[in-house]
Amino acid sequence: MVSIVITTKNAEEFIVDCIKSVINSNYIKAGGNFEIILVDNYSADKTVEIAKSLGAKTFLKGPERSAQRNYGVEQSAGEIVGILDADMILSETVISECVEIFENNENIKALYIPEKIFGKGFFNKVRNFERSFYNTTVIDGLRFFRREDFLKIGGFDTSLYAAEDWDLDRRMKTAGGGDSNY
């Protein structure tokens, strides 16, 4: 089973596209076993209602993203966990590609997923241009994990207010021996 954990706060503008990108993946269309877990930080909009209507298991948790992500993984049943932000859209093949890598490489504990930033604003264009110069670095962040390995290192450090993804990357590298995909 693959568990997709999505963290939200007032994300009704994005959540439909995010969840539908999971549902429309070739892994799900081929009958892959999955669940979508949404952990919301007490939104004032319709994020939770929308997610429920699309079949997501929903939970309320704060005070911030790291605690939400850890809680979502704790609630998950999948051996493989993907962690998404509400404004992310997966390509059709990313889940099946990740599952295949994990199935064929039992020593890999986590995977980077290259990200592209879409949007018409200047800042979005600059960030996407910047990302074109690197791949599988701590800036990309780990997105798919073996659940047991994520829990073994304690997940995200909830005492950090910034750079929690870099910290997780560092601790996962230490636990996994330092490979580019752990």
Rank of each mutant, 00 (worst) to 15 (best):
G78Y: 00
E103Y: 04
R65M: 13
R65G: 08
I101P: 02
N70P: 05
K109R: 12
A86H: 09
Q68F: 13
A86C: 11
A77M: 15
D87N: 09
N70T: 06
A77P: 08
K61F: 00
L90P: 12
E79S: 02
I83W: 05
R69E: 14
N70H: 08
E79F: 00
T93K: 11
E100R: 04
I101C: 03
E103T: 08
N107T: 00
K61R: 09
Q75H: 09
N104D: 10
I95P: 07
L84Y: 07
G72E: 11
I108M: 08
N104I: 09
K109V: 06
V73A: 04
V99P: 01
V73P: 08
R65D: 11
N105H: 06
C98P: 02
F102M: 05
I89G: 06
T93S: 15
I83V: 07
N104Q: 12
E79I: 06
R69S: 14
P63L: 04
A77H: 15
D87H: 01
M88K: 05
E97V: 06
I108H: 11
L90T: 02
Q75I: 09
E79K: 00
E106M: 03
V73G: 05
G82N: 02
E64Y: 15
G72V: 13
E103I: 07
A67C: 10
D87P: 02
V81A: 14
G78L: 04
D85N: 05
E103H: 03
Q75S: 07
A77L: 15
E97I: 03
E64H: 15
